[in-house]
Amino acid sequence: MSSSSDEDESYKMYKDRPEWNDVKSVPQDDGPAPVVQIAYSEKFKDVFDYFRAVMAMNEKSERALELTGSAIELNPANYTVWHYRREVLKALKKDIAVEMKFLSQIIMEQQKNYQVWHHRRALVEWSQDFSEELDFTADIISRDQKNYHAWQHRQWVIQEFEQWDGELDFIDKLLEQDVRNNSAWNERYFVIEHTTGFTDEVVKREIEYAIKKINLATKNESAWSYLRGVLQDKGLTWSKSLCDQIHSWRGEGLRSPHLAAFLLDMFDEDLEKKKCDVNKTMDKVRSLCKELAEDTDTVRRKYWNFVLQRMTKEYEVK
C-alpha cells in the first residue's frame, strides 16, 4: 500500500539528493528477531534512516528542519521527531508564525493526534501569541463538535490568557445547533466555575437555562447532568421552582428516564435529611424504580432494582 506522495514523480529520495551526500544514513537496528515489525515503505525507510543520522550528529540546520517535515508527514505520531523539530526551530530562531501555518494544515488532517496539539501548545507558550487560537479551535469544533483535543486546547488558552469573555455566547450557539452537545455543556460549567462561580443567583439562572433546554429535548442526558452538577453543593431540592417544575413535568406525564432518576434522587435526599414521611416516600420510590426497570430504562433494570434495594435497606423501618 502506498500513499499518493509515494507515487509523486517529482519526489526525490533523500539518498538521491546531492545536498545530503555528505551524510551517512543510519538504518534501524531492530535486532535478530523483531516483534510487531512494520513493513515500512521505501520512502519511510529512506526518511527515517536520514532522520536517525541527523539526530546522531545533532545537526540543527535548514535541511534538518525540512527532513523533520518529511518525517512528520509519514508519521505524525513520532513524538521524538516533533521534539527534534522544536529544537531545530529554536536553534535557527525560526518565525513561529510560519511554523503555525504549517502546523494548522497538519492538524486539519490529523485532528485527533496528541502530538500535533502538544506542538501547538508549545508554540503558543513560546510566542505568547494566542490571537488565532480561539478561531482555530472553533473551526475544528465546527467540523467535529466533540473533538476532545480541540476543547482541551481551547480551555488551556482561555485559562492561560484569561479569555473568558464571549465564551458563553460561543457555547449558546453550539447548543442552539445541537442541544445534546455534551462538550459544550461541560464548557459552560467550566466557564462559570472560573468566572462568577456558582452563587445563588447564578445557580438560579442556570436552572432556568437547563429547564429551557430540557423542554426542547426531555431525554437529553447532558442537560439533566448539568442540572445535577450546578446543584451538587446545594442539594437537588434546594430550588423550590425546580421542584415545582419536576412535579409538573411528571404531572404532564413526561416519561423521560432522566426525570424519573432525578426525582428519585430528590426523594433520596429528603429521606436522608428525614424531611418526609418515610413510608409514603418509599412507596413513590418503589413505583419510580419499577417504572425505570420495567418500562422506560430497561437496559438498566438490574441497576434500578439495586437502587431500590439499597434505599429500602437504608431508609425503611423494619
Binding site: 515489525q37 512494520i38 508519521n75
Partner: peptide, 13 residues
Amino acid sequence: LQILPHRYSILDT
C-alpha cells in the same frame, strides 16, 4: 506479533 502492513507506520514509536 509478526508484521503489520505499511499503513500502520503511525504505530512505529
